[in-house]
Simulated scan of single mutants.
Amino acid sequence: MSCPVKKIGLMGGTFDPVHTVHLIAADQARTSLGLDEVWFIPAHIPPHKREKRITDDSHRIAMLKLAIDNHPAFCLSTVEIDTAEMGKPSFTYDTMLYLNNRYPDTAFYFIIGGDMVEYLHHWNRIDELVQMVRFVALARPGYLMKHPFGDRITEVEMPQLDVSSTMIRNFVSQRRSIRYLVPEAVRLYIEENGLYGS
């Protein structure tokens, strides 16, 4: 008798810093699709942010560990950082090639925001990528997503919560409170390590 295929959600991003909406989105996808786990994958150099300054990998990893510590189904995967070539961006195609080869008995679901769907056709090797992983698009209620990928994208309704990492960084630099926008352990880490001009 063979073991059932594991269903793993993947949530990629810069996580600079991770915030509560990242966690809510991951949990909404997990419960809606019956995923066994959700792996958070911090990008080394996101292709769309090559010119932007990104906080050191070690800090972003530390904040993610603190943020997901109390959730039994949330895990950290540093695959994109561990396999990155110096100075080269992290492409989802390469990540999925690696993960599918390493975990052949796993069904992967790549979680993205509903607003990202219309940009998917710009992703590196997207026609091959949609055959390698099912995308899960988190859309606000009543939000229509147009795409040419058919059933390769599963839509999950997500409450509209307007929080971003950019907002968090700006709030910190302006000495505004980020309490409740990030997990408390992350807020303390940012303060203790003087990140984002704190």
Rank of each mutant, 00 (worst) to 15 (best):
G194M: 08
E118K: 15
Y93T: 05
L138N: 14
A25K: 06
Y143A: 00
A67V: 01
M145Q: 14
E157C: 08
P104H: 03
Y93H: 11
V117I: 07
I8E: 03
L120T: 07
L66G: 02
N124C: 06
H44D: 14
I68G: 05
F135N: 05
L120Q: 12
P89A: 08
M132Q: 14
A43I: 04
R187V: 00
K49N: 00
A26K: 10
H71K: 05
Q28K: 08
Y180T: 00
A67C: 06
R176H: 15
R179P: 03
S77C: 09
A43Y: 10
F108V: 01
D56L: 08
I61Q: 07
D69M: 05
K88D: 00
N170D: 15
R53W: 14
D27L: 15
L64A: 00
V18R: 05
D151S: 13
M132Y: 10
R30A: 11
T154V: 15
T95W: 02
P148Y: 13
A62D: 08
K49H: 09
D56G: 02
F110S: 05
D162C: 01
V5P: 13
A84I: 04
D162N: 12
P89E: 03
L188D: 03
L35Y: 04
R102P: 01
I24K: 08
K49Y: 07
A137I: 10
R125S: 02
E80R: 02
T20E: 10
I81A: 02
I112M: 08
G150P: 15
R176Y: 08
E192L: 14
A29N: 09
N70R: 10
R60S: 02
C3M: 09
V18C: 10
A84H: 12
K49W: 07
I45W: 04
L99Y: 01
P89R: 14
F15V: 01
L195N: 02
L97Q: 13
W123S: 12
G13L: 03
I111A: 07
R175W: 09
E157L: 13
N170V: 02
R53K: 13
L195D: 09
S165Y: 00
R169D: 11
R169K: 15
V182Y: 02
L99F: 01
H147A: 09
Y119I: 07
A26F: 04
T78I: 15
A43R: 11
E51Q: 12
G9K: 04
V117A: 03
L138W: 12
V172K: 00
V38W: 05
